[in-house]
């Protein structure tokens, strides 16, 4: 099936890419339109004669959008670092050591990744409320582990398995302890895999909505997804501001995807295909 692509292929491909990207392009144009052009006949015109940054300004001035960004960065950043660290230990053990109950543990990890978040939220909410941890960073980071830890273990196990076993044998023969083997031999080779996992974990934490919606209800602790979702007023929807906020959130993700697409794809598909 590895045939050379013809011109028709490129036409079809362009149409497909255009369809996928169309919503983004439209939102980008809308975010630059003055409010008057967002309604009526002008709403359907794919350009504006009077581009303006007033929507962008409004996002940061009339909404605590910077706070949302800061909160999301802190929560996703800390979640990523601590999950990947803990997951890398377990993944190393599962991928490269011999012990009983490995399949059971891997099965447990996989089943937990399938848990619906809604089924864990009521006890987590009540516990965090009693501990006074709702509306805090740590109160969001801990429950995020439910989502990110199984994901990281699952991906890291695949990466750790790919590292040649000979290296480890050599280290063992040289008398390195298990921890030394891990830090000196395995970890340096696993850096690309760990980095890939970190990107996926970060995206998962950054995009999470349900926990953030239920646990952090104060403006000062809202994350970006919750903050944006709450832009909608009760009677009016400020489409200009929403478009601008969408662009602000999307652009960094687009850059990240462009830079790391190879890694993201390898992470997404690891464990899903047997090579």
């Amino acid at each position: 099936m590895q045939k050379k692509a013809g011109p028709l292929f490129y036409v079809g491909l362009s149409v497909f890419i255009f369809l996928v990207m169309f919503p983004f392009l439209w939102i980008l144009i809308s975010s630059l339109k003055p409010v008057s052009e967002l309604f009526g006949e002008k709403a359907f015109v794919p350009f504006t004669s009077d581009p303006t940054f007033v929507n962008y300004q409004s996002v940061f001035v009339n909404h605590p959008f910077l706070t949302y960004l800061k909160n999301s960065l802190i929560v996703s950043g800390v979640t990523t670092i601590y999950t990947v660290l803990i997951a890398s230990f377990s993944a190393y053990a599962i991928a490269r050591m011999k012990f009983k109950g490995k399949t059971v543990i891997l099965g447990l990890v996989l089943s937990v990744s399938m848990f619906p978040q809604i089924a864990t939220i009521s006890p987590i909410y009540i516990i965090l409320k009693n501990l006074g941890l709702t509306n805090s960073y740590i109160g969001l980071i801990i429950p995020y582990t439910t989502i990110t830890l199984p994901l990281s273990i699952w991906i890291l196990v695949t990466f750790f398995r790919k590292i040649p076993f000979d290296l480890e044998e050599a280290a063992k023969i040289d008398g390195a302890s298990i921890m030394q083997t891990y830090w000196r031999v395995i970890l340096p080779l696993a850096v690309p895999g760990i980095f890939t996992t970190a990107i996926l974990v970060f995206i998962a934490a950054w995009n999470e909505f349900l926990f953030a919606l239920v646990l952090n209800t104060q403006e000062a602790y809202k994350t970006v997804p919750v903050g944006i979702a709450m832009f909608q007023g009760q009677f009016t929807i400020p489409w200009g501001e929403i478009s601008a906020a969408t662009v602000v959130v999307t652009v960094p993700l687009v850059i990240m995807v462009l830079l790391f697409q190879r890694r993201i794809v390898s992470g997404l598909t690891s464990g899903a295909v047997k090579e």
């Binding site: 996928v20 969408t246 999307t250």
Partner: peptide, 21 residues
């Protein structure tokens, strides 16, 4: 590959708002 990854990467909430618009 990158361009088809973008819809996957953005928060669902943001995608939902875009489509609502």
């Amino acid at each position: 590959r990158a361009s088809i990854l973008i819809p996957w990467a953005i928060p669902t909430v943001v995608a939902a708002l875009m489509w609502k618009f």
